[in-house]
């Protein structure tokens, strides 16, 4: 009852977009005020973040702002957070985080939030971006990673079927994809020298028009990869590809090319074959845990390492597997969460 009341209160405050009256009568302590800066609306990670506080019975007041994928709104958010003098800032995604908290080597105190502690989530490559090291940010922030280590991803693909050639279609404008391709190439070469069967990585960039990647060019690129003889298509953690996942995975399926996704959406809501991910919801909860460390246990954010959840989720898209005729190995089948609308439920 108490928690529901508190949640109601939080929502009220949120609607008013103002400071909650200090007389939150049932809370002996003033709720912590957390400024949540989102990139593309309320989703699983934000929900996980919020639910953690509810479950732990920690009184919080969430001030929620959505940039709607518009970079221009972010300086306003910085100013607002500073003006409200919130207890903690939560940033969602690479862009929001880098714009609001600044890169580790560019600490512009005016443009960024520096004195207020902050936690970030869903940042693909925090290392070398917002933080210099995953063990410590060296400043007033900490956060979580959400990408499964590339080596683990490769092992997953190899456990499905041994591969000789891995194909990647990527957006040349996003750094994430490039980084992923470089890592894949290195792993492919390394496993070749380790006596295991190595693999090659073939990557093709989508066409760019007027400084924007062209979704229509995706199927052509997939066809090129198929012609080049790739056994598996890898979908990097890339916002453009994520948005256009139906085009990408649809094209791949049409050409009977199995796909592995580094994110959950291509598998859950599109036609990628399978993926190994940390669920956004879990990532959000872990981020909230780190916020708790800062707010309640008064641990300095720079002493909190940046890491990922312990539990890996393997998501398997069964209709796609059937269409491909490429059935998952029994072991993977036992471990995976299976998306199968034919079964009427997701297990």
């Amino acid at each position: 009852m108490r928690t529901r009341l508190r949640r109601l209160l939080a929502i009220l405050c949120l609607l008013a977009a103002s400071v909650a009256p200090a007389g939150a009568a049932d809370a002996p302590a003033r709720p912590f005020r957390i400024y949540m800066a989102l990139w593309r609306g309320w989703e699983e990670a934000a929900q996980g973040f919020k639910d953690y506080f509810t479950n732990q019975n920690i009184p919080v007041e969430l001030i929620i702002r959505d940039a709607g994928q518009d970079k221009g709104k972010l300086p306003e958010f910085v100013a607002e957070a500073k003006r409200l003098n919130v207890d903690l800032v939560f940033t969602w995604g690479t862009t929001v985080t880098e714009e609001m908290l600044g890169r580790f080597d560019d600490p512009d105190t005016d443009a960024h939030i520096t004195s207020i502690p902050a936690v970030f989530a869903i940042v693909s490559q925090p290392l070398g971006g917002v933080v210099p090291s995953l063990t410590s940010s060296g400043r007033n922030i900490t956060g979580t990673t959400y990408l499964v280590p590339t080596e683990t991803q490769v092992n997953l693909i190899q456990s499905y079927r041994p591969i000789k050639r891995l194909g990647v279609v990527y957006n040349p404008l996003e750094r994430n994809s490039r980084v992923a391709i470089d890592e894949l190439t290195a792993i492919g070469e390394k496993s070749g020298t380790n006596g295991k069967s190595g693999f090659q990585v073939t990557s093709i960039a989508v066409e760019v028009e007027d400084g924007k990647p062209k979704p229509a060019s995706i199927p052509g690129k997939v066809a090129e990869l198929k012609k080049a003889g790739v056994d598996f298509l890898y979908i990097p953690p890339d916002t453009f590809l994520n948005v256009n996942r139906d085009i990408l995975t649809g094209a791949a399926l049409e050409m009977l090319l199995p796909t592995f996704a580094a994110g959950e959406n291509p598998v859950l809501t599109s036609k990628a074959l399978f993926g190994g991910v940390y669920r956004y919801y879990t990532v959000g909860q872990l981020t909230a845990y780190k916020a708790e460390q800062i707010l309640i246990h008064k641990i300095n954010p720079k002493d909190i390492p940046i890491d990922a959840p312990k539990r890996l989720s393997i998501i398997l898209n069964m209709p796609v597997a059937r269409q491909l005729g490429l059935y998952p190995p029994m072991k993977l089948l036992g471990l995976a969460e299976i998306v199968d609308p034919a079964e009427g439920k997701r297990k």
Partner: peptide, 21 residues
Amino acid sequence: SIERAIGHGIPLTGLYGMDDF
């Protein structure tokens, strides 16, 4: 386990990775 796989539409002959299983 095998029946579950079959339930997902995998034919018996299409079961994969049985050695590891």
